[in-house]
Design a protein around this nucleic acid. Structure first.
Lengths: 333, 333
DNA sequence: CTGAAAGCGCTTACAG
DNA sequence: CTGAAAGCGCTTACAG
């Protein structure tokens, strides 16, 4: 059913000029006389002409496409990220080739797509790339930016919240509030977001005489819910549970309530991310806010510099973020 | 910083064959001797060659790109849709050019992107297109499928839940349970999802001696929350509130609780969509489940038929969906 | 300011 | 089975 769209030659004929001239009219910065321009635009409008981005991309070696790979779209943290990236990229004249990654590590097929379509850069939000895949991208001169994942020693950029320090501060915060029996519900292991938060949290507690119990939660609501059930069913249940992200913490809150516990009196809960739902009255979750806007801004700035021929030196940045106190944690009396 | 990727000519030289042969090796169904194929693949692997999808798209007039336009990514209903579409499209060899629409009606710029990149089809989830934009797509032979929006008399396909009948059944269900003072919280007006649900609901109640009060809610949590506050502050508050979608209904539940009302005893709540959160223990929202998988399946089947040269006759389908009873509504005693 | 021509990286008849 | 050549729709030196 696909008809051929009109091309610049047809417009040229109609306007009585050469095809080169038509091309110039649609190339910002080219010199065309106002009269000719008008005639060409007129003809183009009548014919419904639009420059073919593929042909343009081919000859200019510039596609204006950015590859965006995202894994956990169901976690409300990410749709917001996707929306903001898409909007900002469009404002800068770029388009988004969207890939949903199934696993923690983005695979070869998913990357091939980016390579074949000659994307100008790749943003990966919550997945990692194996060193040789990053190499294959960067050997093609395609900048890669890891958003919300940290990978040291690889030829790509990364931006995330300073999860280690945040985890530590959360530990200290809870300790100072009087909590001594704590639990942490992990996200997926081997993700820097989880590991850094976990490490920071553990270190804050070490040698202070606080108990710490750890369960697996997979960064999901169900994971948080089930882990909380296990934790809260113990003889000595934790006084506070730190969920590796907000969606986990929401699961914890619901589990606690389901077995008749009240928050924060029977058990306090703290999360990480500050997704919209954390502030919903049903939850009022105390959490650590990731500075999403700054992180996105940095990502794009870096991306555009690299596309423009930046030095390609891998850089990595951590944004602090901030504790947001709501009702799910209170000072122990 | 962008280096040129290796092209088929370089591979040809290395393998000692013509460029045509290299091309054939990468074109499924072309005849190449096993020996030659092996030599070419070897050379390609060593050089890290990948066929350039843009050049291929240009010559074959087939890009393998589908344009996907989505508006309300923040509504948890849609990330799931996005994930499923992306996955299914990839399984069929297509890639997704993602556009986030800012307004209810998708605008010219957003469509230009699709046109310029020669997408083979367009899926629009929760936005509408003006007739002349649809015309410009279909005159280029690009099939358009509206997902979760109904538009009659336009040259495009549409699939959605039978919102009118569902709204009606919800009205009857509530009536039969003994509810007489009801409220409906609207989604954005002039969206078929809202209008059909509203119309069905109203008609079910008409002439039965039930009261119906309507408030605006914009399909958002905040909208639902605030509308509920208005409704529940009245002298005669409604016995049940129907939120135009689940996220609205969740806002209603939180608002009701915030002012000390219990659900469903003081006020019952019903939603629409059956998003994951509707089944969370904190909510247990009774709602109407949209048959998302079937809707997606139909969309893709139709899309592929059209791409293959279908008749282009606009078709429209409604799936019934089903009532899912949870705890937020109960029989009135 | 404008046109003729080369070339981006491919696919595909057409010969052989 | 394989190669030479044309062509997809553009941009951009190069002349004029």
């Amino acid at each position: 059913m696909k008809k051929k769209p009109v091309n610049s030659m047809e417009v040229a004929k109609k306007a009585g000029v050469s095809q080169s001239t038509v091309s110039r009219v649609f190339t910002p910065g080219s010199s065309v006389s106002p009269k000719t321009r008008k005639r060409v635009l007129e003809a183009a409008r009548e014919l419904g002409y639009r420059p073919n981005a593929l042909a343009r991309g081919l000859i200019m070696n510039k596609t204006n496409i950015i590859g965006l790979a995202m894994r956990d779209i169901q976690n409300p943290f990410y749709p917001e990220i996707l929306e903001k990236f898409t909007k900002a990229l469009r404002d800068n004249g770029y388009h988004v080739l969207f890939v949903h990654t199934e696993n923690d590590e983005i695979n070869q097929d998913e990357i091939s797509e980016f390579l074949e379509y000659n994307v100008e850069g790749v943003i990966v939000t919550d997945a990692t790339l194996s060193p040789n895949i990053i190499a294959s991208l960067s050997s093609n001169g395609i900048p890669v930016i890891l958003f919300n994942r940290r990978m040291d020693g690889l030829p790509c950029h990364s931006v995330s919240c300073d999860n280690y320090t945040a985890g530590k501060k959360i530990g200290e915060y809870l300790y100072e509030l009087g909590y001594r029996r704590m639990a942490y519900i992990r996200g997926r292991k081997n993700t820097s977001t989880n590991d850094d938060r976990e490490r920071g949290f553990c270190e804050a507690l070490m040698g202070r005489g606080a108990e710490l119990c750890i369960e697996d939660g997979e960064f999901t609501y169900e994971g948080g819910y089930n882990a909380a059930l296990r934790l809260l069913g113990k003889r000595e249940r934790p006084e506070v549970i730190f969920g590796a992200n907000d969606i986990t913490a929401l699961g914890v809150m619901d589990a606690a309530r389901a077995i008749g516990l009240s928050i924060p009196d029977d058990v306090a809960v703290i999360g990480f991310d500050d997704i919209t739902m954390a502030s919903w009255p049903s939850y009022g979750l105390t959490t650590w806010r990731q500075p999403v806007d700054e992180m996105i801004e940095w990502t794009l700035a870096k991306l555009f510099v690299e596309i423009d021929g930046g030095d390609g030196k891998p850089s990595s940045i951590l944004f602090p973020g901030i504790l947001v106190e709501r009702g799910s944690v209170k000072k122990r009396s």
